[in-house]
Simulated assay, not measured.
Amino acid sequence: MNSKHLLPRRVAPLVLIAAIGALSLSACDQRVAPPAPRADVDAAIDKTRDATVAAANKAAELAEKARDQTVAFAKSPQVREDAGKVVDALKNVGTTAAAKVDDAAITASVSAGLAKDSELSARQISVETRAGTVKLVGPAPSAEAKARATDIAKSVGGVATVDNQLEVRAM
């Protein structure tokens, strides 16, 4: 082979590599766009501030409107009527609960009074109380014992009437 021809073949790839390197370096030399001027940043901040103030004003306006509507609703005749019904219902619940406690206390007192009588068997006599009316059910050894059961029940405070259903029979 001829040495004249070898040199250009060896030089050609080197020239090609150098050209690619030069192009790469020239591409790196391109400048990046400068940051936005200070005036653009200030304008964006002002715009954000204005939007925030507008949103806060709208929120305050809506809150005031909601408060006014709530006050108007609470003062409406229908709400007042409903509140009165609730108060009445609570009073009735309290009265009913007190009556139940009173009835239970009356029942216990009548049962205790019957237990003190030697002829009456408190265990065999059922005592029920509802709204101050005492109902006696069970056996009584005599008509006199039956009458005493009525008297014992009537002697307890809070008893309005006595329904004596005791049956006279020998025990």
Rank of each mutant, 00 (worst) to 15 (best):
A122I: 05
N164H: 01
N2F: 03
T96E: 08
V101G: 05
R49V: 03
S109E: 04
A98Y: 08
A89H: 11
V15Y: 00
A56Q: 15
A22P: 08
Q124C: 06
D46S: 14
V71S: 03
S142H: 12
R80M: 15
L25D: 00
V86K: 07
D68V: 09
A55D: 09
P8M: 13
D102M: 10
A153P: 02
S121C: 08
A83H: 08
L14D: 04
R31T: 04
I45M: 06
T133H: 02
L23E: 01
D151H: 01
A43F: 01
A122F: 06
L6K: 03
A145N: 05
D82A: 11
A160D: 02
S118K: 08
T133C: 01
F73I: 01
A59P: 08
K75S: 11
T52G: 01
S142R: 05
L114N: 03
A104L: 13
N57W: 01
K91H: 15
D82T: 07
T95F: 06
L16A: 12
P37S: 14
V156N: 05
N2Y: 02
A54D: 00
A74G: 02
S24H: 01
K58T: 14
M1A: 15
V71K: 14
Q124T: 10
S26T: 03
G157V: 08
A99S: 15
L136R: 01
A51W: 03
G138P: 14
T129I: 07
I152P: 13
I125K: 11
I152V: 14
A112G: 09
A143R: 10
A63N: 12
A39K: 04
K116G: 02
T107A: 05
R80K: 15
S126L: 06
T52D: 02
K47W: 04
A115P: 06
L6V: 04
V11E: 11
R130P: 00
G157H: 08
R67Y: 15
K75L: 02
L166M: 04
V159L: 01
A66D: 14
A36S: 06
A55H: 02
